[in-house]
Computed example of a mutant assay.
Amino acid sequence: MTYQTNLNLKATDFALLFFRIALALMMLVHGIPKLLTLFGDAEIQFADPMGLGMTASLALAVFAEVICSILLLLGLGTRLAAIPLIITMLVAILIVHVPDGWGRQELPTLYAVCYVVLLLTGPGKYSLDHIFLKNKKSKIA
């Protein structure tokens, strides 16, 4: 049975739950220090790759890495929450870490690929998205 290719939806939904939670927790490790910096007393020193200002750039990164990661964790608005995370990782890959080479681009590339997977698959059955959609469908019927 190990080598069968039939799709097991229950296992897939559990894998998506595990994937979402692990990915969100890993990104929160990057986002929470940025959140503390944003609301801390120290002067903000952050990359400003788009010319928005360091504070605005940091706020956008915090929104993606903290708020959107929490939404992924809950499976709430998963596909929409993945979009700012993808954009943030693309900025890191294509602008911020270009001079640093592949060694510094590898991690944001891996995150971006994972977020694209969630954008394409959605959160799976074990999510608030599924619960709310199920309730909405039952009210319509």
Score class of each variant (00 low, 15 high):
45 Q>A: 11
89 M>K: 01
110 L>K: 13
89 M>E: 02
102 W>C: 02
58 L>K: 01
72 L>G: 04
42 A>D: 14
51 G>V: 04
14 F>E: 10
86 I>D: 03
59 A>N: 09
21 I>L: 12
8 N>Y: 07
88 T>N: 15
131 I>T: 15
45 Q>S: 12
58 L>E: 00
99 P>Q: 08
103 G>F: 03
25 L>M: 08
74 L>Y: 08
120 L>N: 09
121 T>K: 14
17 L>A: 06
56 A>C: 05
2 T>I: 14
121 T>F: 15
79 R>S: 01
19 F>L: 02
112 A>H: 08
131 I>C: 14
85 L>Y: 00
83 I>W: 12
27 M>V: 05
120 L>S: 11
105 Q>P: 10
58 L>F: 01
28 L>C: 05
54 M>L: 10
97 H>D: 06
62 V>E: 04
137 K>V: 14
93 I>S: 05
101 G>P: 01
38 L>A: 02
141 A>G: 11
136 K>D: 07
4 Q>E: 13
2 T>N: 14
9 L>A: 13
10 K>W: 09
42 A>K: 15
52 L>P: 11
109 T>K: 05
112 A>T: 09
25 L>R: 03
76 L>F: 12
85 L>P: 00
23 L>T: 08
37 T>F: 12
123 P>A: 03
122 G>A: 04
131 I>Q: 15
65 E>N: 04
116 V>E: 04
81 A>L: 05
55 T>I: 11
72 L>A: 06
92 A>L: 04
62 V>F: 04
77 G>Y: 01
26 M>D: 06
122 G>D: 02
9 L>V: 15
126 Y>H: 06
114 C>M: 12
139 K>G: 13
127 S>T: 00
97 H>R: 02
39 F>Y: 06
4 Q>A: 14
21 I>S: 11
56 A>W: 07
125 K>S: 02
26 M>I: 08
141 A>P: 10
45 Q>R: 14
8 N>L: 10
27 M>D: 01
42 A>S: 15
45 Q>T: 12
100 D>Q: 03
56 A>H: 05
137 K>N: 12
25 L>P: 07
56 A>R: 09
1 M>V: 15
104 R>P: 08
31 G>L: 07
54 M>V: 10
52 L>W: 15
104 R>C: 09
80 L>H: 10
118 L>H: 02
111 Y>L: 00
84 P>I: 03
29 V>Q: 13
97 H>Q: 06
